[in-house]
Design a protein around this nucleic acid. Structure first.
Lengths: 246, 246
DNA sequence: CTGCCAACTAACCGGACGGTTAGCAAACCG
DNA sequence: CGGTTTGCTAACCGTCCGGTTAGTTGGCAG
């Protein structure tokens, strides 16, 4: 079955979201104009309003996406981890993995105050719930002996800070691969909270084992950053479609 | 000697800077308008242009201030610390202490890409130098046995991330005092990099010993957030000045 | 072939924001 | 005292940006 019109719409919508998330992360929400997002995707500003009602809803969707990933990671880690420490470290690991290859290097957006009041309130509720769950892992770990006695609040702030700083220096195209980063961060967090001496850490993150390259989005990648579409592009579209069906 | 006109000018300039830094940290550079900064100080926008040529130079001054504090902390720690680990942890401790009470809770500004190209280049140079010095502390510590073998780059990224996240959750008016925060962060960083088992950490940051309240700025505090000055204010100014001389 | 709808562009609108100008009042200086 | 400078306000300007509108094109259903 070929993709229906609705499928295509959904995929393009996601493309817009990824582009926006990448820009918001890199330059900040207010420093990113709708025109810029549109131009990077090779369309005009007005086209974006077919997928999102306004700029703010784009930001809200980014946060929603991130929080979904957070809770999914939480659930997976709850099952896979055997004690508080393992669950905590696994949560962060799953979380960063999911966001890095779904939302194009974005880890966590920082300008939550730019959200509309309702969206903001919702985010704060969800984030609090997430952070409470993480702190609970710390307490659980202290009780089961896997985590060193410490202030759970502070420990989680430190870990989240390190996580949220990642987009500022990590580029998926750099020497460190995303799964190397992920493993190295897990080692660091483990050392931070573990009650017992931790196995040696990597002396060089680049030496960690790494799987194959993560998949890259296909749609609109060829057109990225080449200005608005022209009549010529429509013909190309037609050709591609015809070629695809053959 | 009473303050000269230049003294007053310098003090007010610093007040503007503090207010701007606090706003930039809280809402972000682009989300803060000159009107808002001015209003919080009880003046009009145009008044700000007596102290800074434009908005961007305000941001540049913030970064300059922060980098000065960074290098000062580095030097102090180089002398006070007895090995790589101590020097690293002391640097961060001095740094956060200085910024918290000089720049009103600001730790590090994040929107460096908003700077003018020249300012940005200068900042990047300085920041790289700072980070290289921190990484050198890690390497020094690994050699002298005070730091666990690890990737210096990653360790510093993790520590800086935790630091730069502080302004997102720490409020000087909250239950944790700034020196409690400082001590607790030092414990965390120590545990992260130390080669040997670390003394127990605080179970509750609020239980850490704390000195008296940090000093609060006096100038313009009374007027903060009460709209532009009117003729009435001038008379108040006069009274204050007269009273001060008596 | 015909009519409709989705997708998109080009052009435009209103408002906010950075920055400027003119002018006034107090402070300083001889 | 008079003349100049400083510190500020009120009003204004140009630009950019979020969002809208009208119109065009191509695919698709009947």
């Amino acid at each position: 079955m070929f993709p229906t019109r609705e499928d295509v719409h959904g995929i393009k919508r996601l493309e817009v979201l990824r582009e926006a998330a990448a820009s918001f992360n890199f330059k900040g929400y207010h420093a990113t104009s709708m025109n810029e997002i549109a131009a990077s995707l090779g369309v005009t500003k007005a086209a974006l309003y077919h997928y999102f009602p306004n700029k703010n809803s784009l930001l809200a969707a980014c946060f929603e996406h991130a929080m979904d990933a957070a809770f999914a990671s939480l659930e997976r880690a709850r099952k896979d981890g055997r004690n508080g420490r393992e669950r905590l470290v696994l949560t962060m690991s799953y979380y960063v993995a999911q966001l890095i290859n779904e939302l194009n290097c974005c880890v966590v957006l920082m300008e939550e105050q730019a959200l509309e009041p309702e969206d903001h309130a919702k985010l704060v509720r969800q984030r609090d719930r997430f952070e409470r769950a993480l702190r609970a892992f710390i307490r659980e770990g202290i009780e089961d002996g896997s985590v060193v006695p410490c202030d759970p609040k502070l420990a989680i702030f430190v870990i989240l800070g390190a996580m949220n700083w990642v987009p500022k220096w990590f580029k998926p195209s750099g020497v460190w691969k995303s799964d190397q980063l992920n493993a190295a961060l897990a080692q660091m967090f483990e050392r931070l909270v573990s009650s017992s001496p931790v196995a040696d850490m990597a002396r060089d993150v680049g030496d960690l084992p790494s799987r194959a390259e993560p998949p890259v989005s296909l749609i609109s990648l060829a057109r990225r950053g080449r200005g608005p579409r022209t009549g010529q592009d429509r013909k190309i579209d037609k050709k591609i479609k015809a070629g695809g069906k053959r």
